[in-house]
């Protein structure tokens, strides 16, 4: 097995005009590879992974760096590697009457990552959905929450 590519910096954003030309050229004459990163793993600075082409990578970023969707992490004459953030699944919850505070408390107590959308609470699903549904079961049975999607 060959040594992995060691990725030690984020070169830029694929949308950056300064990089777009080079990426376009590599797309025609070289290899464009994608490194998929799970949303929950974005804060990681050091990890092993494979690109979609099977290239082994060892990511070892400085602590000040943070990966993002579209981050160009490798660029040479023949190859570019661009980060794509995997799809984040969300659980959309509608609190029952007078239950919004209690639902918010539950989500906080369980350290769920949330967003707000109108009257709904969106919960980031970072593991098996069953684990989230199990925690909501009692709330559902008591009419304190409705799972919208």
């Amino acid at each position: 097995m060959s040594d992995p590519l060691v990725i030690e910096s984020i070169i830029g954003d694929r949308g950056d005009p300064a990089l777009a030309g080079r990426l376009h050229e590599i797309g025609h004459h070289g290899v464009m590879e994608t490194l998929v990163v799970d949303p929950a793993d974005l804060p990681r600075r050091r990890f092993h992974s494979l690109t979609d082409a099977g290239t082994a990578c060892f990511v070892a970023l400085p602590r000040s760096a943070r990966l993002f969707d579209g981050a160009v992490v490798w660029l040479d004459g023949q190859r570019a590697i661009v980060v794509r953030v995997g799809e984040q699944r969300w659980l959309r919850l509608a609190p029952g009457a007078n239950a919004a505070l209690e639902l918010g408390y539950l989500a906080g107590n369980l350290h769920w990552r949330v967003r707000f959308d109108g009257d709904c609470l969106l919960v980031a699903v970072d593991g098996p959905i069953e684990a989230y549904l199990a925690r909501l079961k009692d709330f559902q049975q008591r009419g304190k929450v409705r799972i919208v999607e």
Partner: peptide, 8 residues
Amino acid sequence: MRTNGHGA
């Protein structure tokens, strides 16, 4: 490997 300047 040591990644210079990146911190431990």
